[in-house]
């Protein structure tokens, strides 16, 4: 049972290509360049809100059992 998707991705407008790291690296495509810049900016913002030492944060997040 492998029904093919009939409809285009919901969030994309007509003729818009699905966004991905690969698509974003296509040279000379203004939309792709813009998306790549947007993604860079998003990841930079995430870097500013996350604690720098990921491993320490993850290991430090320990709860007692619940419910």
């Amino acid at each position: 049972m492998s029904a093919q998707p009939q409809k285009q991705p919901y969030r994309h407008g007509d003729g818009d290509q699905p966004e991905s790291a690969d698509a974003a690296q296509v040279q000379g495509n203004p939309q792709a360049t813009e998306r790549a810049a947007e993604l860079d900016s998003l990841l930079d913002e995430i870097d500013t809100v996350l604690e720098a030492n990921a491993e320490e944060f993850v290991k430090g997040f320990v709860q007692k059992g619940g419910q």
Binding site: V58, G60, F61, V62, Q63, K64, G65, G66, Q67
Partner: peptide, 8 residues
């Protein structure tokens, strides 16, 4: 959490 505890 990272120690395998779960809460709901």
């Amino acid at each position: 959490d990272s120690a395998g505890n779960s809460y709901g």
